[in-house]
């Protein structure tokens, strides 16, 4: 690796919609998937990331650069993550959780999962079905029975904001 020469190595990442991104190797190897490729010597040319689109990859790279600039201080890293995710909408978060999973970045994965959960917490069942694209496979009777079993959990649910 080029650390010996004193100049930071830069990697080129390619999204599935053919956008190219330059990123410092030290930041990129936060992704275990990329780190493995580098260690296997596949990083000479362009690293293709077939499961991540350009918009999401740009966001992930912003995160990689931001978090790797913070020294080993868990509190500061946490507040950076909170701030980084604070303005992301549900769809962006969903794309990021898939990207974090594919890139094998556990810290981002944990943070995005927790953020999605925070958004979901007070939402209705209908909201969750729409956002996750889930088809209701209950019969009306079955659904009423499941609802009846946990009736109290339907108190304090927010009005849907996505219609």
């Amino acid at each position: 690796m080029a650390a010996e020469t004193g100049t930071p190595t830069t990697l080129t990442l390619k999204s599935n919609d053919d956008e190219l991104f330059s990123v410092a190797e030290s930041a990129a190897i936060l992704s275990v998937t990329i780190r493995n490729m580098v260690e296997d010597g596949c990083a000479g040319g362009v690293i293709p990331l077939d499961n991540v689109d350009g918009k999401t990859l740009a966001s992930v790279i912003t995160y990689m650069n931001g978090i790797s600039a913070i020294p080993a201080d868990e509190e500061k890293k946490k507040s950076y993550r909170d701030k980084f995710l604070s303005d992301k909408d549900f769809e962006t978060l969903a794309d990021m959780v898939l990207a974090a999973n594919y890139l094998n970045m556990s810290c981002l994965m944990d943070a995005v999962s927790a953020k999605i959960a925070q958004v979901m917490e007070k939402k209705s069942v209908g909201w969750v079905r729409r956002k996750f694209g889930i088809e209701n496979d209950y019969t009306p009777e079955e659904e009423a029975a499941v609802k009846e079993e946990h009736k109290w959990t339907f108190e304090g649910v927010e009005t849907d904001d996505d219609n």
Binding site: A117, M120, E121, K122, V128, F132, E143
Partner: peptide, 26 residues
């Protein structure tokens, strides 16, 4: 979304939300 990711997301939720979301699908 694979079950592992759904599970990872849901594991952050409070119990009240989880019991409600049993209604989402089988």
């Amino acid at each position: 979304l694979p079950d592992e990711i759904i599970e990872e997301i849901l594991s952050n939720l409070p119990v009240k939300s989880l019991l409600r979301f049993k209604c989402v699908s089988k």
